[in-house]
Design a protein around this nucleic acid. Structure first.
Lengths: 356, 356
DNA sequence: ATATGTTGTGAGACCGGTCTCTTTATACAG
DNA sequence: CTGTATAAAGAGACCGGTCTCACAACATAT
């Protein structure tokens, strides 16, 4: 079974050149597809290259050209359907433009995000798409720009940072969903998110460090306020980070005196956990509690009842981010733009009509 | 807003060396963390590096060391929960060993897989994890070994190829599930997969080009045969590639004279489609049709009834593949091994007991 | 016939690191 | 006080491409 494997030195242009009896420069022209070479010599070189099984070393190529053809993507969690769909959109658009994609996971941890960014810049990616875990610690993002690497923020914008961003229309989505719930007669609504809770209750919306969540909460709160409903902030609950935490959050909510009749889940993972919590508490949807969930995750369409969701069109968001980044890589003097992908409410069966 | 951005040339060891008034070699020793340098000089260099915001160029580093610190992963479809979970396992283990991961999507297309492999080898990855779309066209996989790049196959093994592989224990899983169904009194069972159907009916199990699917079908068929049930191959249905195709497959199955009382779904995507098909046909689970689904996807636990599944422990599979690859990268003379991750049946509520 | 232009090829610098080899400085033994 | 071992720093080749520049051969213009 002695394959001719071993870790033999790989074939270089110089090897091909020698075999084809031409100079390294000429072989490089043929193999790199640049400059001018006669047809005869081209054939000669190609033949030798094929015979030797030449494979260009992209590393070396990148080093001299200064372009790697790679886009770096830093996401919160690939396992989350939101991100895997986004990554798909990003990759598809990137490939179409001739770029490849390196994905790094931050786990929504700031330090992991920082080191991922460092690493990707070290690899000399041509550009970066980052989902910033927090909006209040952005030195490393400033560094990216300082290093001259094009950057597009994804899902979350940072006003202080003058940089392209592609986000959902989060505030509008929350407003639409909340108005819908109120329109269905609900008066006590709660918003539940997986954001880390900084010591229990939320006192100041402005302190939410994730802009997407903040905007949604702002939208939620504004509608409640506009409808004259009391104490909206009280009904914003963070910290639904895993099933156990979520169980706690939901149990606390429903055991309160004026327990909410409808829940708004900040993402599909939280939504799933809430669904399970309600199930284990023996509460049925929508007769006991109504719910709306962000993201059209696959599970939302097969539950009983199917879940009313906010379709974020994540694939489009990813595609857009990629296209924007490529544009900035290829013709750099470009005005900073903040793109918002509009969302829509998909009414299914998880919201009850109350009162009438 | 004039950031000091521009696309300025990046800071190199030579720049740092000049600033610290030492030789390039010395600065490189400090910055690269190798060789011996006095404490005083080290401080000097570090200070200059910090002042100039030096970032090592990993490309250059890889070129001289011959190691990139990157593992390439070619998967069928990142959007598929199976792969996103696997990628998570792979990344986690890789990071632990000091490697990073580039992910490429093949979309289960052979030519996309080939070009992804080419690209990754070109980038001089230290090793590759590939989920081969087909087991009958493997020249490009041979090329990988020829190029001296360590390779681990994932999810699907290729007997002809003498190379490490990490797979689930597919045959055993199928046997277990099928026996369970028979034990529950089912006599007419069908296996449904998303594999491309090559012209309708399946005539020869050996011709299935995906080893994981083939093994499952083999397990399925062997149990039916052993139980003395007639014409097992008739009940293997391929081509459930999207919702519409699946609707067709299911409709055909249930409208047959001896329609199956239980379905085995080859993966969670197919399972979801089958679930929806049955729903739209007005058939209820498990009273009209029972089903078992491969992979513990999130949707399977929130349906009514919850779906009985085969837990493939995909995260472990990914982790194992990564660890195996790293081992092979770091100490190359290693016997070829084929690792199987055992599965287990998780009984929920989607299988009815018949007869008695 | 010489000047000018065009086309194809070769020589070698360069990208930014690593790493070997050589040189210089310092310590300790004889 | 000289000799040798040892530690620290410098010089420069090298990885495998790209790309500028020089040059040769031949065609066309004057």
């Amino acid at each position: 079974m002695e394959d001719s494997a071993h870790s033999k030195r790989s074939v270089t242009v110089a090897d091909v050149a020698k075999a084809a009896k031409v100079s390294k420069a000429t072989a490089a022209r043929v193999l790199g597809g640049y400059g001018v070479v006669s047809a005869k010599i081209t054939d000669q070189v190609m033949a030798s290259a094929a015979a030797l099984e030449y494979r260009p070393n992209e590393l070396a190529r990148s080093m001299s050209t200064g372009r790697s053809g790679i886009i770096g993507v830093v996401v919160g969690d690939i396992e989350n359907a939101f991100f895997s769909l986004a990554v798909r959109g990003i990759s598809d658009a990137a490939r179409l433009a001739g770029f490849n994609v390196i994905i790094a996971n931050s786990g929504e941890q700031l330090d992991a995000e920082k080191s991922a960014v460092d690493l990707l810049i070290g690899k000399r990616v041509d550009g970066l798409i980052v989902t910033p875990a927090r909006c209040d610690n952005i030195d490393h993002l400033r560094d990216i720009r300082r290093a001259g690497v094009p950057l597009v923020l994804f899902d979350r914008a940072i006003p202080e940072l003058d940089v392209d961003a592609v986000t959902g229309d989060d505030q509008d989505a929350a407003v639409t969903a909340t108005r819908y719930l109120i329109g269905q007669g609900h008066r006590r609504l709660a918003y539940v998110s997986a954001m880390d809770a900084e010591g229990g209750g939320l006192t100041d919306v402005g302190r939410i460090s994730n802009s997407a969540v903040r905007e949604r909460v702002e939208g939620f709160v504004s509608v409640l306020t506009e409808a004259g409903l009391p104490n909206p902030l009280h009904y914003v609950r963070l910290g639904a980070t895993d099933q156990q935490q979520t169980d706690g959050v939901i149990k606390r909510l429903v055991s309160e005196g004026s327990s909410p009749t409808a829940l708004l889940a900040s993402d599909s993972l939280v939504g799933l956990r809430i669904f399970k919590s309600l199930q284990s508490l023996g509460l049925s949807i929508p007769s006991d509690v109504s719910m709306i969930c962000f993201l059209d995750a696959d599970w939302t369409s097969v539950t009983v009842p199917p879940i009313t969701i906010i379709d974020q069109r994540v694939y489009e968001m990813g595609k857009l981010a990629s296209e924007r980044l490529v544009a900035r890589i290829e013709r750099t003097p470009l005005a900073v733009e903040r793109l918002r992908v509009s969302t829509r409410l998909v009414v299914r069966g998880s919201v009850a009509t109350i009162g009438r």
